[in-house]
Write a protein that binds this DNA or RNA. Structure first.
Lengths: 420, 420
DNA sequence: CGTGGTTTGTTGGTGGAGCGAACAAAAGAG
DNA sequence: CTCTTTTGTTCGCTCCACCAACAAACCACG
C-alpha cells in the first residue's frame, strides 16, 4: 500500500496558493477568491449543498458563506431549490444549485468529420446543440467558419430568447493553436496554417462582444474527461492526474495534473503523436521517422491492416473479430506503439493513469490490454503503484463539451465580473 | 516573431491564483500572501529594492508595503542597508536586502561520489559547507548517514554560534523519493530500497526539531538551475520553462514549468533515463529494452566507447579530442539518444529549451550540437519557436544548492511562521 | 398539543488589513 | 535659501470575515 502524496507543501500548507501569482492581494481579492470557492463547491457537489454544509466544506463561517451565497443568487449564478424533506432533527437547509440555463458557455468545434455548437450551463447540463457531420478535410477556413457561424447564431438566438447569458465562446480546432491570440497555427488535417479564428468569429454581430478563445481539440477533450471522471468518482477534480491520448486521424494528447492541463508554454502541449516509437521506423509527414502516428494514427492503422483508405474503425474491429490476422497485428502493434510512447511520458511526469479517448475508446477492448502490458513493463513506478489504462468516459464530441466547459469554468473561477 | 503567451487566463486575470487551492481566504491569508510577495521581490531583485520601488513593483500602496517591510525587518528576515548615493532629486530610499546569514537553509546530499552539507542564507549566498568526495556506491545507509550527520552537526553548530536560525533541512538523494513521508523508495546506484531518511536524520538532536525533507537529486538540481537562470537573465522565475537532463551514472531529469517543478503525483517526476530510444535496443537493468540510460548513462557511454569501466568523462573527452573514432561514435550516439528522448518530452510539454547538466554540462561542446540537431528535426513547434539546447549554469553540486534553496524558498513563500 | 433539543440561517458588533490623503523628511536645482 | 521631487509615515475610511447571539424551522416525546 503506497500512500499517495499530493504536490502540496507537506510542512507549511498554503491558504492562498502563491504559486505563480505575482499580484498583490487586496480585500476585494479575498472576496473574489471566496466567491469562486463557494461557487465551485456548489457546482461540483454531487448532492446539493446548503449554506451550512458549504460553511463546513470550505472552512468559512456560516455568516460569511451566507453573504457570498446571497451575492451569487442575486447574480443569477445560483438558485435555491425546494427544501429537501429531511428525516432528521433541526431546521432543514435550503439546497443550492448552479442556476440552470441562466449562464451558458458555448463551445464550437471544427473537426475533420463534423462541425458543431454545444451550449452548457453552469451545472454542465446540455442546453442546446447543433452538430453537422460531413467531410471537412482540406476545407477552406472562411466557408467552414461561415457554416459554423450560422449554426452558432441559431444557438445564440435561441439562448437569447430564453434570456440566458452567454458567458463566452471557445472554439476547438484539431491543431496547434495560440490561445491568447486566437490563431490556429497549423492544423494538418484541415490543411490550415495561420488562420486567425477569433478575427473570423468576431465578424458575427452576436459574437462581437463576447470573450472568444481557441483551443486544441485534445486539450479540450481532456478537460471534459477530467470533469467527467471527478464527477463519476465523487472526488475532487484536484485529484485528477492522467495522460489523455485521443486517437483520430492525428493523435492528440494532453496532460492533466491536479485537475488542470499542464504544459503549454505556447499552448501547444500534448503533442504525443510525434513521439519516437522507433527511430528506424517509417517516414512521417512531420519530417521525422518512426513517430507514433505512423503506427497508431487512424490512416496508418488502416493501411497497416491492409485495408483500403477510409475504412472505419468499426470495420477494422469487425475484421479483428473475424480473425483477420493482419488486422489483429496492426492493432497489436498500434497498442505497443501507444504503450511505448506513453511509458516515457508516465515516467517523465510521474503519472500512473492513461486514458484512451477518441477512436481508442472504441478500440479499448483490443487496444487497452496491450498498452497496459507495455506500461507495466516500462514504467518504473509500476512496481509500487500499478499503472492504470482506462477508456474515456466523456461521451461523444468530448472536445465540444470541453470547449463549452472551458467557458463555464471561467465563470466559476472568476464570478466577480458577472455580479453586475 | 512569435508572441510568447503564458498560461495566464487571457480574459480575466486572477489576483490570487485559485489554482489548486481549496482553502478559504481570511484576512490573515491576505497578510501572508502579501508578506511573501514583498519578501520574494526583495530576495529576487537584482538591484536592492526600496519601500517605494517595492510598492510600484508589487502593486500595493506605500503604507501597506512599509508595514509589511517593518514586520519582515522585525523578524530579521530583511535588513536595511546604507542609503545609496543617488544622483537624482528627491529623498533617497533605504535599500532593503535579504538578511545575510540570519536565516539559513541546510542542504544535505548523498551521491555516489560524494556526500555533503551546504548552508545558504535567504539571499542565496553560501554560509558554510562541508563536502567529502569518495565512492559511496552500494553503501550501507546507516553508516553513510552517520558520516553525513557528523558533517551536518559541524555545520549546524557553526550556524548556531553565529546565532543563525536554521529554517530546515532538505536531503538530496539519487533515486525515487517520497517527499511527504521522507522515504527513499529506490536508489539504484546506492542500492537502497525503502530507507526512511527522515527517521534516521531525526536521531540527531540538532535536527530533531527542524522540518526535514527528502528530494530527488535531479529535481533539486533543476531547482537550483531555474534560480540561477532567472538571476542571470534578470527576468522573473515564472518565465523559466525547460526540460533539465542531468547525466550521471543514472540519468536524471526534471521539468520546470513557470519556474516550478512539474509532475510528481508521488514525487517521482523527471525519470527520463528510461524513456524509449529504440525498442529493439539493449536490455536495461530496469527490465525494459532500449532505455536512454543504455546509450547515454555514464557507464554505458564508457562501455560503448570501448574504454575500461570507471573511465572518467574527462578522459573520455580527451579520447574524443584525440580523434578516437569509437569514443566519438559513442558520444555521438549518446547525443542522438538524448535528442530522441527529449524531443518526445518537448513535444508533449510544449517546451522549447533543454538544459544539460551534470556530466552533460562537461560534455556540452560535443553533445549539445547533436542534441540540437535531433530536436530541430523532431520538435513540431521548432518551425515557429527555435529549440534551444543549453548547458547548465548552476555550478558544482547543484543538487546540494537546490536542496538548501528548497528550504530557503519555503521561508520566502511562507514567512509568517518565522515572524515570532 | 406544548415543550425541549437540534440544526439552519441571519443580525450586530469587532478586529484586521489595505487604501487614500495629507504630512514630515531628505535630498538636488537654481 | 527656497523650490521641487521623491521617500517614508500617520490617520481616518472602507471592506471583509469573525464571533456571539438570536430567530426560524424541524423532530421527539410526554
Amino acid at each position: 500500500m503506497v500512500t499517495t502524496v499530493r504536490r502540496e507543501d507537506p510542512i507549511q500548507p498554503t491558504l492562498l496558493r502563491t504559486r505563480g501569482s505575482v499580484r498583490p492581494a487586496r480585500q476585494s481579492s479575498l472576496r473574489e477568491h471566496n466567491l469562486s470557492l463557494v461557487l465551485r463547491h456548489i457546482v461540483d457537489a454531487g448532492t446539493p449543498m446548503t449554506r451550512a454544509r458549504l460553511a463546513k466544506a470550505v472552512g468559512l463561517t456560516r455568516p460569511a458563506v451566507s453573504d457570498l451565497v446571497d451575492r451569487l443568487i442575486a447574480a443569477r449564478l445560483v438558485v435555491e431549490s425546494a427544501p429537501e424533506a429531511v428525516e432528521r432533527a433541526g431546521r432543514p437547509g435550503v439546497p443550492l444549485l448552479p442556476a440552470p440555463g441562466s449562464f451558458v458557455g458555448v463551445g464550437l468545434e471544427v473537426a475533420v468529420d463534423h462541425i458543431g455548437v454545444r451550449a452548457l450551463d453552469l451545472g454542465g447540463t446540455l442546453v442546446t446543440e447543433r452538430i453537422v457531420e460531413g467531410d471537412f478535410r482540406a476545407s477552406e477556413p472562411n466557408s467552414i467558419f461561415e457554416r459554423l457561424l450560422s449554426l452558432c447564431d441559431l444557438v445564440v438566438a435561441q439562448l437569447d430568447s430564453s434570456s440566458a447569458t452567454v458567458a463566452g465562446v471557445c472554439v476547438s480546432v484539431p491543431g496547434l493553436t495560440n490561445p491568447g491570440g486566437g490563431m490556429v497555427r497549423y492544423a494538418p488535417n484541415l490543411v490550415w496554417q495561420d488562420v486567425d479564428a477569433i478575427a473570423v468569429l468576431r465578424r458575427s454581430p452576436k459574437l462581437r462582444e463576447l470573450p472568444i478563445e481557441v483551443g486544441n481539440d485534445a486539450d479540450l477533450a481532456a478537460r471534459a474527461e477530467a470533469r467527467q471522471r471527478s464527477r463519476a468518482s465523487g472526488g475532487s477534480r484536484l485529484d485528477q492526474n492522467f495522460l489523455f491520448i485521443s486517437g483520430e486521424v492525428g493523435i492528440g494528447g494532453a496532460i492533466v495534473l491536479g485537475g488542470e492541463l499542464a504544459g503549454g508554454l505556447h499552448g501547444w502541449s500534448g503533442e504525443i503523436g510525434h513521439a519516437v516509437v522507433d527511430p528506424r521506423g517509417p517516414q512521417c509527414g512531420c519530417g521525422a521517422t518512426g513517430c507514433l502516428e505512423q503506427y497508431a494514427g487512424k490512416d496508418a492503422l488502416v493501411r497497416r491492416a491492409g485495408l483500403p483508405p477510409g475504412t472505419t474503425i468499426t470495420n477494422l474491429l469487425a475484421r479483428v473479430a473475424a480473425g483477420d490476422e493482419s488486422a489483429r497485428t496492426a492493432v497489436e502493434e498500434a497498442g505497443q506503439a501507444v504503450g511505448l510512447a506513453s511509458s516515457s511520458a508516465l515516467n517523465l511526469l510521474d503519472l500512473d493513469t492513461v486514458v484512451l479517448g477518441g477512436s481508442y475508446a472504441q478500440m479499448f477492448d483490443v487496444l487497452g490490454p496491450t498498452v497496459h502490458a507495455i506500461l507495466t513493463e516500462r514504467v518504473l513506478a509500476a512496481r509500487w503503484v500499478p499503472v492504470r489504462v482506462e477508456s474515456a468516459v466523456s461521451g461523444d464530441f468530448a472536445s465540444l463539451t470541453g470547449a463549452a466547459m472551458r467557458v463555464v469554468d471561467r465563470v466559476v473561477t472568476h464570478p466577480t465580473p458577472w455580479l453586475g
